[in-house]
């Protein structure tokens, strides 16, 4: 996938992702402060607007950095800062690359997971968005081609969310609920699942 296709693919996925805003808001009201729906909606719209302005010759790295800046500017929230930092870290793995395939996607998602873990001082199993991103990074790493990888990523993201429901939140506002957080799926991991599903739907439509 080259720059122009990547740009279109991201925009298509985000337009689907915002349809989950109400679901994410409700999940976040149960565990956090309820602003995740707004964060995702405002962030996605800002990213789409900035990507539309980007030149067709923009490199994958430039595209990822545009996404990061737009997402952070749209929201001053902790989640937005974490996601933007993750995208910037991912963008470093694409320096000098024009073509994004399975190997590049794997590197990007792995770097994103590492940024979230470091900045958010979180580990897999803390019941955060990291659980979903790490599971998808692993699914990509063990897939042999893009189509297989997309399906594996969707399954891994969904399974990770199911697993978060059984866990107690250990980071952020949700950790204040302690054992009362058990039984509720993590809103951040769910948002990531919806993004991966949206990505897969756009892939299916373009093949």
């Amino acid at each position: 996938m080259q720059g122009t296709n990547l740009n279109e693919h991201i925009r298509g996925s985000l337009e689907i992702l915002v349809e989950s805003a109400d679901e994410l808001r409700d999940l976040d009201q149960a565990l956090g402060d309820g602003d995740l729906g707004i964060t995702i909606t405002a962030g996605s719209h800002a990213v789409v607007a900035e990507l539309e302005k980007l030149s067709p010759t923009a490199t994958p790295t430039e595209i990822a950095r545009t996404c990061a800046k737009a997402f952070a500017s749209a929201n001053p929230s902790t989640m937005a800062a974490l996601v933007a930092g993750a995208l910037l870290n991912g963008s470093r793995t694409w320096e000098g690359k024009d073509e994004i395939g399975l190997a590049e996607a794997t590197e990007f998602v792995t770097a994103a997971a590492s940024s979230i873990s470091q900045r958010g001082k979180s580990e897999v199993g803390d019941k955060t968005i990291l659980d979903g991103i790490a599971a998808v990074a692993e699914a990509l790493r063990t897939s042999s081609d893009s189509t297989e990888a997309t399906d594996a990523a969707v399954r891994a993201a969904g399974r990770a969310v199911e697993e978060t429901a059984g866990l107690q939140s250990r980071r952020g506002r949700a950790s204040w609920l302690q054992e009362r957080s058990i039984g509720l799926p993590d809103p951040g991991a769910t948002a990531f699942q919806r993004l991966v599903e949206a990505w897969s739907r756009v892939s299916a439509a373009t093949h």
Partner: peptide, 17 residues
């Protein structure tokens, strides 16, 4: 403070670029 750390770290990323 948590919120300040997240935002300063991200600003540091942008500055590095």
């Amino acid at each position: 403070y948590g919120g300040d750390v997240f935002n300063f770290d991200l600003a540091g990323d942008l500055a590095e670029l």
